[in-house]
């Protein structure tokens, strides 16, 4: 009774709770929020309080004094810090409802296909604790495929590769279900880490996560350029030899070299998935190929590398960053029709 009443007062939401970014889709409105999954906590009189969430908190990442902590509550696509994640979801729910009280929306959250029951339960419980009236879960590859507009309900195979911040999901879908899914804990974060490690090894320079992410977005490349060193970029960090701040120039070729390991891991995951695909579905894939979604799909030449590695047509989805949340939002809008893809842990 009370739930129904508060349901009237709230907007149902679809949340793509990503390792790097959280996107929120509100029923009837579309995507209303796209912010980094970062929470800044301040210690006031021995009690931790939320200082900032999202963009504001991300700017604090790596620049905090002793009494402030900037935390990313999700790691590898799942919740690493339960309470902080709850605070973050609470913040997003409130933000969407313009800080209105009594908001108890129905929430659909997507989870990696490789997540365990415990991890899924953690996500569901934190969303419930954040004030959701009812929580449904949807598997990320399914959401990505729906969001990309793949004909997932038809009796034909479709393959989607969703490269997120924490995980890469490779899945073959047919008849409205996941035929085969593989989740590897390689994603944007690992690429950033690879860049940091490469620069430290080769230039004795320590750069922060934020700088590494910028390098990846600007001159990141899945394979070295055909001629020369490609684009270049100035980066700043701390010299490990004498401990002073330093600026160096890094080339596209070097970044491609740095990213070789995570890219290879993604290619391997796709190859393994293809090996496990039934022949009929594999035949469908020859014609239509693979669709790339997620932020990782924007890595320059990744489609080219995958195309050569698999021999299949590889296309990048329209608006790859929003595919998952759009698919989750579609499940919210058509929850009656798409109820088969929604699950709950109770």
């Amino acid at each position: 009774m009370f739930a129904r009443l508060t349901g009237w007062l709230s907007n149902d939401m679809a949340i793509d709770l990503g390792t790097a970014n959280t996107l929120v889709y509100v029923k009837g409105k579309g995507i209303v929020l796209n912010e980094p999954s970062v929470v800044a906590l301040a210690e006031v009189k021995g009690r931790k309080q939320v200082l900032a969430v999202g963009n504001e908190a991300k700017q604090m990442l790596g620049r905090t004094p002793g009494n402030i902590q900037a935390i990313r509550p999700l790691r590898d696509g799942v919740i690493a810090d339960f309470e902080v994640a709850e605070e973050m979801i609470k913040h997003f729910i409130r933000k969407v409802h313009n800080r209105r009280s009594f908001a108890a929306p129905l929430v659909i959250v997507c989870v990696p296909s490789g997540s365990t029951a415990v991890e899924r339960r953690a996500i569901q419980e934190s969303a419930e604790a954040a004030g959701a009236r009812k929580v449904f879960l949807i598997e990320e590859p399914m959401a990505a495929a729906i969001g990309a507009g793949l004909p997932v309900t038809e009796p034909t195979g479709s393959m989607v590769v969703d490269i997120g911040g924490g995980t890469t999901e490779v899945a073959v879908l047919s008849l409205g279900g996941i035929v085969y899914a593989r989740s590897v804990r390689v994603g944007g974060d690992m690429m950033d880490e690879a860049i940091i490690n490469y620069i430290r090894r080769n230039h004795n320079l320590l750069v922060g996560e934020g700088s590494a992410e910028r390098i990846k977005k600007e001159i990141g490349c899945a394979c070295p350029p055909e001629h020369g060193d490609g684009k270049t970029m100035m980066i700043k960090g701390r010299d490990l030899m004498n401990g002073v701040p330093k600026e160096i120039v890094i080339t596209q070729r070097q970044v491609a070299e740095a990213l070789a390991e995570p890219v290879t891991a993604i290619i391997d995951a796709v190859k393994v998935a293809l090996e496990h695909t039934a022949p009929e579905l594999a035949a469908d894939l020859v014609d239509k190929g693979i669709i790339l979604t997620g932020g990782g799909a924007l890595l320059y030449n990744l489609d080219f590398v995958l195309r050569h590695a698999t021999g299949l047509p590889v296309s990048i989805a329209d608006d790859p960053l929003s595919c998952v949340v759009l698919g989750t939002g579609r499940a919210l809008e058509e929850s009656k029709k798409l109820r088969n893809v929604l699950t709950t842990m109770y």
């Binding site: 990309a148 507009g149 239509k288 190929g289 047509p313 590889v314 296309s315 990048i316 989805a317 329209d318």
Partner: peptide, 13 residues
Amino acid sequence: LPGQAYAIGFVRA
């Protein structure tokens, strides 16, 4: 073309 998502991908590629 096989479908909307693929068509856009092919055109882009």
